[in-house]
Measured scan of single mutants.
Amino acid sequence: KRPMNAFMVWSRGQRRKMALENPKMHNSEISKRLGADWKLLTDAEKRPFIDEAKRLRAVHMKEYPDYK
């Protein structure tokens, strides 16, 4: 299984929150909104998620060195 990218790290928490706030919203609509919201974030706002994704990638490479 591939490590999560920055968007996936960020959206994991946001998806739960949005689903709780909008229980009747379909998952596909939540995904569209999350994508739009992510694009509106500044680089500074994205930085912690980018850093976490880099950390996850490094751990994955160490655990699965032959993964392609």
Score class of each variant (00 low, 15 high):
1 K>T: 10
1 K>N: 10
1 K>C: 08
1 K>H: 07
1 K>W: 08
1 K>R: 05
1 K>S: 07
1 K>P: 10
2 R>H: 15
2 R>L: 11
2 R>Y: 11
2 R>E: 13
3 P>Y: 07
3 P>A: 05
3 P>F: 05
3 P>S: 12
3 P>C: 05
3 P>E: 15
3 P>R: 08
3 P>D: 14
4 M>H: 07
4 M>V: 14
4 M>N: 06
4 M>P: 13
4 M>Q: 12
4 M>G: 09
4 M>Y: 09
4 M>F: 02
4 M>D: 14
4 M>E: 15
5 N>L: 04
5 N>F: 01
5 N>S: 13
6 A>R: 00
6 A>W: 01
6 A>I: 01
6 A>H: 06
6 A>V: 05
6 A>Y: 00
6 A>M: 03
7 F>W: 02
7 F>A: 04
7 F>L: 03
7 F>P: 00
7 F>I: 00
7 F>D: 01
8 M>P: 05
8 M>T: 11
8 M>C: 08
8 M>Q: 15
8 M>I: 10
8 M>V: 09
8 M>Y: 07
8 M>N: 08
8 M>F: 03
9 V>W: 02
9 V>K: 00
9 V>E: 05
9 V>L: 15
10 W>I: 02
10 W>F: 07
10 W>K: 00
11 S>D: 05
11 S>R: 01
11 S>I: 05
11 S>F: 03
11 S>A: 14
12 R>D: 15
12 R>A: 15
12 R>C: 13
12 R>S: 15
12 R>Y: 14
12 R>V: 15
12 R>N: 13
13 G>T: 15
13 G>L: 13
13 G>D: 13
14 Q>H: 09
14 Q>F: 04
14 Q>T: 09
14 Q>W: 00
14 Q>Y: 03
14 Q>L: 02
14 Q>E: 14
14 Q>K: 04
14 Q>C: 01
14 Q>V: 04
14 Q>D: 08
15 R>G: 09
15 R>Y: 12
16 R>P: 12
16 R>T: 13
16 R>S: 12
16 R>H: 15
16 R>C: 08
16 R>A: 14
16 R>D: 15
16 R>F: 00
17 K>C: 04
17 K>I: 13
17 K>F: 03
17 K>S: 08
17 K>W: 02
17 K>E: 12
17 K>Y: 07
18 M>I: 14
18 M>G: 01
18 M>N: 04
18 M>T: 00
18 M>S: 00
18 M>P: 01
19 A>S: 10
19 A>Y: 05
19 A>D: 09
19 A>H: 15
19 A>I: 06
19 A>P: 03
20 L>C: 08
20 L>I: 09
20 L>N: 08
20 L>G: 07
20 L>A: 13
20 L>F: 05
20 L>R: 06
21 E>S: 06
21 E>G: 05
21 E>R: 01
21 E>Q: 09
22 N>L: 05
22 N>G: 02
22 N>Q: 04
22 N>A: 03
22 N>H: 11
22 N>E: 07
24 K>A: 07
24 K>D: 15
24 K>V: 05
24 K>L: 15
24 K>T: 06
24 K>E: 15
24 K>Y: 00
24 K>S: 12
25 M>Y: 00
25 M>T: 05
25 M>R: 00
25 M>A: 05
25 M>D: 04
25 M>E: 06
26 H>T: 15
26 H>P: 12
26 H>F: 04
26 H>D: 15
26 H>L: 14
26 H>G: 14
26 H>S: 15
27 N>K: 09
27 N>H: 08
27 N>A: 14
27 N>Q: 11
27 N>S: 12
28 S>A: 12
28 S>C: 10
28 S>M: 03
28 S>Q: 09
28 S>R: 06
29 E>Q: 02
29 E>R: 01
29 E>H: 03
29 E>M: 03
29 E>Y: 00
30 I>Q: 05
30 I>F: 02
30 I>N: 02
30 I>T: 05
30 I>V: 06
31 S>T: 10
33 R>Q: 13
33 R>F: 08
33 R>I: 09
33 R>Y: 02
33 R>S: 05
34 L>P: 00
34 L>Q: 03
34 L>T: 04
34 L>V: 07
34 L>G: 01
35 G>S: 15
37 D>Y: 07
37 D>N: 11
37 D>L: 08
37 D>I: 12
37 D>C: 07
37 D>G: 09
37 D>H: 09
37 D>E: 14
38 W>V: 01
38 W>Y: 01
38 W>E: 02
38 W>G: 03
38 W>M: 02
38 W>H: 07
39 K>I: 01
39 K>F: 09
39 K>L: 12
39 K>Q: 09
40 L>E: 11
40 L>Y: 03
40 L>R: 13
40 L>W: 01
41 L>S: 00
41 L>W: 01
41 L>G: 02
41 L>C: 00
41 L>T: 00
42 T>F: 00
42 T>L: 01
42 T>Q: 07
42 T>M: 04
42 T>N: 11
42 T>C: 02
43 D>I: 07
43 D>W: 07
43 D>H: 09
43 D>Q: 06
43 D>G: 04
43 D>S: 07
43 D>L: 10
43 D>F: 05
44 A>F: 05
44 A>H: 07
44 A>G: 09
44 A>P: 05
44 A>R: 06
44 A>V: 09
44 A>E: 14
44 A>C: 05
45 E>S: 01
45 E>V: 04
45 E>W: 00
45 E>H: 03
45 E>F: 12
45 E>P: 02
46 K>N: 05
46 K>T: 02
46 K>E: 03
46 K>A: 01
46 K>Q: 04
46 K>I: 01
46 K>V: 04
46 K>R: 11
47 R>P: 03
47 R>V: 03
48 P>M: 00
48 P>D: 02
48 P>Y: 09
48 P>G: 02
49 F>A: 05
49 F>M: 05
49 F>G: 01
49 F>W: 09
49 F>T: 02
49 F>Y: 14
49 F>C: 06
50 I>P: 06
50 I>C: 08
50 I>L: 08
50 I>W: 03
51 D>E: 14
51 D>F: 03
51 D>A: 08
51 D>I: 09
51 D>N: 11
51 D>K: 05
51 D>Y: 03
52 E>W: 01
53 A>K: 00
53 A>Y: 01
53 A>Q: 03
53 A>D: 03
53 A>H: 12
53 A>C: 03
54 K>T: 11
54 K>I: 07
54 K>Y: 03
55 R>L: 09
55 R>F: 03
55 R>S: 08
55 R>A: 15
55 R>D: 07
55 R>Q: 10
56 L>W: 06
56 L>H: 05
56 L>D: 08
56 L>P: 03
56 L>R: 04
56 L>I: 07
57 R>L: 13
57 R>Y: 05
57 R>Q: 11
57 R>W: 08
57 R>K: 13
57 R>G: 13
57 R>F: 13
58 A>C: 11
58 A>L: 11
58 A>S: 13
58 A>D: 15
58 A>I: 06
59 V>K: 12
59 V>W: 07
59 V>M: 12
59 V>Q: 10
59 V>C: 12
60 H>P: 13
60 H>A: 13
60 H>W: 11
60 H>E: 15
60 H>Q: 13
60 H>S: 14
60 H>R: 10
61 M>F: 09
61 M>Q: 13
61 M>P: 10
61 M>H: 12
61 M>C: 13
61 M>V: 13
62 K>Q: 08
62 K>L: 08
62 K>E: 13
62 K>I: 05
62 K>V: 11
62 K>G: 11
62 K>S: 12
62 K>C: 13
63 E>L: 06
63 E>T: 05
63 E>N: 06
63 E>R: 08
63 E>C: 02
63 E>W: 04
64 Y>P: 11
64 Y>I: 10
64 Y>W: 11
64 Y>H: 14
64 Y>K: 14
64 Y>E: 15
64 Y>F: 15
64 Y>V: 15
65 P>L: 11
65 P>I: 04
65 P>A: 11
65 P>R: 09
65 P>M: 14
65 P>S: 11
65 P>Q: 12
66 D>Y: 06
66 D>H: 08
66 D>P: 09
66 D>N: 10
66 D>F: 09
66 D>V: 09
66 D>C: 10
67 Y>I: 13
67 Y>M: 13
67 Y>G: 15
67 Y>Q: 15
68 K>A: 15
68 K>F: 15
68 K>L: 10
68 K>G: 11
68 K>I: 03
68 K>S: 15
68 K>R: 00
